[in-house]
Amino acid sequence: MHKGFKTTLYHIILWIVALIFFAPVFWIILSAFKTKDQILSIPPKWFFTPTLANFVDLFTRPNVGTYIRNSLLISAIAVLIALVVSFLAAYAFSRFKLKSTSLIMFFLLSIRMVPAAASVIPVFLMYVALGWKDTYPGMTLFYAMFSIPFSVWILKGFVDGVSERFDETGLVNGGSRLHVLFDVVLPQVRPGLVAAFIFNMVFVWNEYMFNYIIGGKTTTTVPVALVTWMLNQGGVDWTFMASLTVVFMIPPILAVYFFQKYLLIGMTFGTVRGEI
C-alpha cells in the first residue's frame, strides 16, 4: 500500500512537470479559440465560449494555403534529399575508412555552428547572382544542405553499429553493393533515420531567417508569413497569430507522438538499439 502511494505520487509529479512545460503552449491554443478582446483581457479569461471564427478567418485569407503547402513541400523534400545523401556518406565514412573522413565530418559540424546571419550572406550574394533567389529548388537544396551535417553524424553512429558481417554475407550471396546498402543496412538504421528526419524537419519547418532572406513571394513559408503578417493595421493581429501557430504546430507534435520510440533510440547516435 505504501509503495503504491509512492508510485502514484511519483507519477503525479511527472505529469505536473510535463504540464508546466506545456502550459504556455496551452495558453496559445486557448487564445486561438478566443476573440481579440478576450486574448488581451486582464485578468485572463479562463472560461469563455470558444469560437472557430479565427480558423475560418485564417483560411479565407489569401495565400495561407500556399504558405502551408510551401512549408510542407520544402521541408519534407529538403529533409528527404538530405537523408539519402547523408546515408550514402555515412555508409562510406563508416565502412571504408577514407582518409578524408574526419576532416569532412569536422567541416560538416563547423558549418552548422556558423550563425545563420553569417552563413546566409554569401549564399544570398550567390543566389542573387545566379538568379536562384526565390526558387523552389534553390530554397529546398539550401535547406537540404542545412540538414546534412546532423544527419551524417547520427547515421554514421547507426551504420557503425551494424556489423560488417551483414555486408559480407550480402555480397557473398551475390547481392550488389547497392542491394547491401538499401536492403541490408538501411532497415537496421531506421531509428536513426526517423530521429534525423524529425529533428531536421522541425528545424526547417520552424526556420525563419533563411526563407526571409533567400526566399521571396513564391517560396514564402509559414514562419515568414507569421512575422510579416503579425503587424496588421497598426496593432498585432493576435487572432491570426494564434490560429496559424496552432495549425502550424500540429505536424511536429503528431510526429513526436507517433515516432517517440524511434526518436529516443535515434538520439543515442547509434549507441543503443533496444527500447528506451
Binding site: 512545460f21 506545456f22 525563419y208 514562419p223 507569421l226 504546430m249
Partner: peptide, 12 residues
C-alpha cells in the same frame, strides 16, 4: 507535451 516547447516556431 513535455517536448512541445522545442517544436514550436521561435517566431511564434
Amino acid at each position: 507535451l513535455l517536448f512541445t516547447p522545442m517544436l514550436i516556431a521561435p517566431a511564434s
